[in-house]
Amino acid sequence: MSTRTIGLNEQLYSYLLSVSLREPEILQRLRQETASHPSGNMQISPEQGQFMRLLVQLIGAKKTLEVGVFTGYSSLSVALALPADGKIIACDVSEEYTAIARLYWQEAGVVDKIDLRLAPALVTLDQLLATGQANTFDFAFIDADKVNYDGYYERALQLIRPGGLIAIDNVLWSGTVANPEIQDESTQAIRILNQKLRDDERVTLSLLPIGDGLTLALKRY
């Protein structure tokens, strides 16, 4: 028993992966390719991808939203867990990064499940709301520029149905959120959202120390 979450050193983290990770070979290859990318640290961890697949299956998600695609590991993880008629609307601004994602989506046979929108995500989310798609999504994953996290969250909350789930990445931000000496714009934006979520009665909340910190917000009404 433990009264607090334990830390993971390299040995324990390796053990965790060895006894729990069920990573499809195509996801493993994408993760390895992305690891050599200059911005490879933007990729989620494999155990987080697996956890998200479990969440999608648990809530029976069919229509999902992703804000921030990068090379496609998270969207591919979710797409593999969706039923044949499932759909992801994926928001990103980089043709370069998402070109890698498209290759793996195609190879995995899930390209028809993913509707990639190359535009500022706030614009795409506002368009979805304007076309009557509020309360129609089952799941949303937010993992993009941190200064707009609050805007992404508020729009995702409108788009998600009651009982739907929003997952927000990087909420521990490598521990910098707990260091008052660090006051850059991104860190402050995450702190503000974390504090807001703590008191937001529209959702049921849990912040998990998986990856770089993952907040789960279940829409109550």
Rank of each mutant, 00 (worst) to 15 (best):
Q28G: 14
Q28E: 12
R29A: 10
R29M: 05
R29F: 09
R29D: 08
L30Q: 03
L30F: 01
R31Q: 00
R31L: 08
Q32A: 14
Q32R: 15
Q32N: 15
E33L: 15
T34Q: 11
A35N: 11
S36M: 08
S36W: 09
H37A: 02
H37N: 14
P38N: 10
P38T: 10
P38L: 07
P38S: 06
P38A: 13
S39I: 06
S39E: 07
S39P: 00
G40Y: 01
N41V: 13
N41F: 15
N41C: 07
N41K: 15
N41I: 15
M42P: 02
M42V: 01
M42D: 11
Q43S: 08
Q43A: 07
Q43D: 06
Q43K: 13
I44E: 01
I44V: 11
I44P: 08
I44C: 10
I44M: 11
S45K: 10
P46V: 02
P46R: 07
E47Y: 02
E47W: 14
E47V: 13
Q48H: 09
Q48N: 03
Q48D: 10
Q48W: 07
G49M: 10
G49I: 03
Q50R: 04
F51M: 13
F51Y: 14
M52T: 04
M52Q: 10
M52W: 11
M52R: 12
R53C: 05
L54E: 12
L54A: 15
L55C: 13
L55F: 04
V56G: 04
V56W: 03
V56C: 05
V56E: 04
Q57R: 13
Q57I: 03
L58F: 05
L58S: 08
I59K: 07
I59D: 05
G60Y: 11
A61N: 08
A61Q: 03
A61L: 13
K62C: 08
K62L: 09
K62Y: 11
K62T: 07
K63N: 15
T64D: 05
T64Y: 12
T64P: 12
L65I: 09
L65W: 02
E66P: 06
E66R: 01
V67S: 01
V67D: 00
V69F: 11
V69Q: 09
V69H: 00
V69C: 06
V69M: 12
V69E: 00
V69N: 09
F70H: 02
F70S: 02
T71W: 01
T71H: 06
G72W: 01
G72L: 05
Y73K: 05
Y73M: 10
Y73L: 09
S74P: 07
S75T: 14
S75L: 02
